[in-house]
């Protein structure tokens, strides 16, 4: 291996690693706030990538229909609850949020897609179609079980992953997609060719991380999420409802997932079920951080990216084996640094 290849692999590894880092942060966030181990994170990546790919071809993405379908399901659940509690005055808001808005977005996409709008508009459209699925999934699958054990929530996550993967197949088909890069620029830096696309990915990831940091430090909702993660009872007592915190954290996770998908779409071909592996690589990073520390999780994810880049050079067939086996030394390390038997929740 010469320096050129080594540097190229570093660039490649950091590019993928930046995306895994974003996902790792979202996973840590969701776990801290809701105790949900968010396996379906990867599906949001795939949905984001495939929705953008559809728009670039001038086709109405399946996500628009999916959003309406899921919206209808949420509306049914919410209406049933409102009627049970005798809160009929909530009905108009429910209809507006879960039926009228999805219908409006579907119409918008229908109208806009064939006109192939500018990339920025396509990205925005992708986000408004995919991100609302996050809080809706929380409402349908997790909110009724908010007090369940981490284990039950994890099984729910796997079930949601199953359902979302299957739905991905229905709405996007089995074909993979790859979008054109945001930038074809290449810069020569010594022996290294820096591609515009990797700068885009790293820059966008960094910007997103900074934005998240500002959100958590300086906004009341960011503080409310932190408060919920630190002390759920205390948060309820100041009026932060776990359901609100849950929906908000799922919204952020869906946003991060969809953006990651948009960033990764020009780098690799994405299929309806590709998200799972991408998401899990974020997980390996998050586990390095013990599902608790944001900076360690991000660093772990970068490590996963680098490991993957080098593994695919040295032993490409065993790339996945190597990446996922990384978790074993990590767990060994953690099991020797953690010293407690905790009483399970149930």
């Amino acid at each position: 291996m010469n320096t050129e290849i080594a540097l190229f692999l570093i660039q490649d590894g950091l590019t993928n690693g930046a995306i895994y880092a974003l996902l790792a942060l979202a996973l840590v966030l969701v776990f801290a706030v809701t105790r949900v181990i968010f396996i379906p994170q990867g599906e949001f990546v795939a949905y984001g990538a495939l929705t953008l790919a559809g728009l670039q071809l001038g086709k109405l993405p399946g996500t628009a229909w999916l959003l309406l379908g899921v919206g209808l399901a949420v509306a049914v659940v919410e209406l049933a609850q409102a009627l049970r509690l005798g809160l009929a005055r909530r009905i108009p808001a429910i209809l507006f949020k879960f039926i009228i808005i999805p219908v409006a977005l579907l119409s918008l996409a229908w109208w806009a897609a064939p006109q192939k709008p500018a990339l920025t508009l396509q990205i925005l459209l992708t986000l408004v179609l995919v991100v609302p699925l996050g809080p809706m999934v929380y409402r349908l699958a997790y909110q009724p079980l908010a007090n369940a054990s981490v284990l039950v929530l994890l099984i729910i996550s796997v079930a949601v992953h199953f359902a979302m993967t299957g739905l991905g197949l229905v709405f996007f088909g089995a074909e993979g997609s790859r979008t054109p890069p945001f930038s074809d620029a290449q810069w020569k830096l010594g022996v290294l060719n820096i591609s515009g696309q990797s700068l885009w990915v790293m820059g966008a990831s960094l910007a997103l991380i900074v934005a998240l940091l500002l959100f958590f430090e300086h906004t009341i909702y960011g503080k409310a999420l932190r408060a919920t993660a630190i002390n759920r009872v205390g948060a309820r007592l100041v009026g932060v409802s776990p359901a609100m915190a849950g929906k908000l954290s799922f919204t952020l996770a869906a946003l991060i997932g969809a953006l990651s998908g948009i960033l990764v779409a020009p780098i690799t071909t994405i299929y309806y079920d590709s998200g799972f592996l991408v998401g899990l690589k974020g997980f390996v990073g998050a586990i390095v951080g013990g599902l608790m520390s944001y900076p360690i999780a991000a660093a772990g994810a970068l490590l996963v990216g680098l490991l993957e880049a080098y593994a695919s050079f040295w032993a490409s067939a065993y790339k996945e084996v190597i990446v996922f086996t990384l978790i074993i030394p990590v767990l060994i390390w953690r099991s020797f640094t953690t010293h407690h038997i905790e009483e399970e929740e149930e």
Partner: peptide
């Protein structure tokens, strides 16, 4: 480790 590391570990090990 806490309860959720076993299932996560088994997912990773199952894939690999």
């Amino acid at each position: 480790l806490s309860g959720h590391y076993l299932p996560l570990g088994t997912i990773a090990w199952g894939i690999s």
